[in-house]
Each structure stands twice: as C-alpha cells, then as structure tokens.
Amino acid sequence: MEKIPILRMGPFLLVTIQIDLYDRLALNLEADLVQMVNKTGARGVLIDISAVSIVDSFMGRIIGNIASMSKILDAETVVVGMQPAVAITLIELGLPLKGVHTALNVEKGMELLKSKIGPEEESDDDGDAD
C-alpha cells in the first residue's frame, strides 16, 4: 500500500504530498502524522501541497484535523505551496481552512514555524529522545 513519507527535520516534521490523495491514504497520513508528533515530540508540522492539484472538502477536513490534533499535542501546523486554482476553489466550495496556518513556500513556512515555537526552543534537540 502507498504511504506518504514523513521526514523529521530538527524539531519539525516535513510532509510533501506528491501524489493525488484518495480517502484512505489521507486518513492514514492523518493518523501517522499525529502519532509521529507524539513519538518525536515535534513542535511543528509542515505540509507541502504544491504538487496537489485538487483539495476537496474531505481533504480540507483532514488538513484541519491534522492542525487541531497537532495543536493539542503542542505542535503548530503550516500548509505551504497551495496552487492558486486550489485556493480559489476552496473558497468557493466554502472551506476557508480556519485554524490552519499557511505560507507561500517551504522556506517561508519554516520561518513561520520557527517564529511560532519561539527562539529558546531552537538550540535543544534530541537531548531527551526516546
């Protein structure tokens, strides 16, 4: 079965969605990501959707879920790289992705995450890894 890889980068988790999502795959990603946040103690999740050509209400909900679940586990979620046509469609569909931070690209997303977790967190890492 296909799986979307989750990369760890310092205190952040990085997910790049390169294929078209169907429901099961999206649900698995949601579960995997939340588990990874819990296991690694990640402080931020960055989801790159620049290769995703459509986001419908179900995928929008999954993205919202990931953000709210991560938030409860003390991690921020930033979605980056949304195609303009996808943004137009989401708004017309009536899905403004409330509560999800967005940034134009990965670089800006990383900056946003770093600013969210505050400067004191950046130096320490892996000190208490399991």
């Binding site: 050509s53 459509i54 986001v55 419908d56 195609q83 303009p84 046509a85 996808v86 137009i88 469609t89 017309e92 569909l93």
Partner: peptide
C-alpha cells in the same frame, strides 16, 4: 481554474 473547480 475551471478544471480545478470541475474536478473538485
């Protein structure tokens, strides 16, 4: 844009 709307 119309393609994306239709496919969505």
């Amino acid at each position: 844009v119309n393609q994306t709307k239709l496919i969505t």
